[in-house]
Amino acid sequence: MAVGKEIRTKISSIKNTQKITRAMEMVAASKMRKTKDRMQATRPYSKKIGQIIKHLAHANPEYKHPFLISRETKRVGLIVVSSDRGLCGGLNSNLFRKTLGKLVEWENAGIEVDVCTIGTKGSSFFSNLKTNLVGQVSKLGDVPHLQDIVGIIKIMLDLYNEGKIDQLYIANNDFVNTMTQRPVIEQLLPIIASDIEENIKGHWDYIYEPDAKDVLDYLLVRYIESIVYQGLVENNACEQAARMVAMKSASDNAGNLIGELQLVYNKARQAAITQEISEIVAGAAAV
């Protein structure tokens, strides 16, 4: 029957698309579980080191590490963590929108920005903008290693130590739950002392072994690395969760579309049959 050939091909093509999105959804679901476990596994370490740094910011060391001293801001550094692949809903665009807002804010204040990106999406987005891109890494895969990002962290820390940038920020997606990912921009350097804990008020300092400079250098660099790494793992978990949700809604939409098209097709078929019958009846009556 010649009726609705176009509609039939369209339905079958949507069915194929639906198969793909459904497969991607399932892959993303299983990857999300793994990346989420990895994210939760590294959380205690970054939480503890954050706690130590918080204590440290309240100590009164004889040696003031440059990471703890804030200076007048003329130029800032920004590390943007994005995903390597697309098809994950508004994950990257939400983050970039938030980052752009911050960039505009800085521009209005006359502050220049150096950008480092992690992930292909970020590097292609920021190379199109008129920003000063000082470093990028991408294709880190689902199991990122600390060694992979040490390089760009060092670029930024060197800039900071040379006084070329006065503040360092990181932009990444925060994993709230499977349905919600929140883009956040946090200040890494100089380290800000937040609310004081009860039991460590007053004038005190650590005993440093072997000496303050050695230990602080090591500890603070470690701290920055652990935050950036944590940001990266969280962003990975966000990517998989966002992809899973996006692919689920794509599969659902395809299902709706198929239903509607099927209805149109059936109606057309019915109309064609009715017409044929009425033609035959009319023909028979004429004889």
């Binding site: 130590i52 204590h55 100590a59 300092d205 650590y206 005993i207 440093y208 072994e209 072997p210 230990v215």
Partner: peptide, 19 residues
């Protein structure tokens, strides 16, 4: 095992940071 030799930490030890 601190860098400068093994340390033993009892409760109420003074604040200390070491590698």
């Amino acid at each position: 095992p601190a860098e400068l030799g093994e340390v033993g930490i009892s409760p109420r030890h003074a604040p200390l940071i070491t590698r």
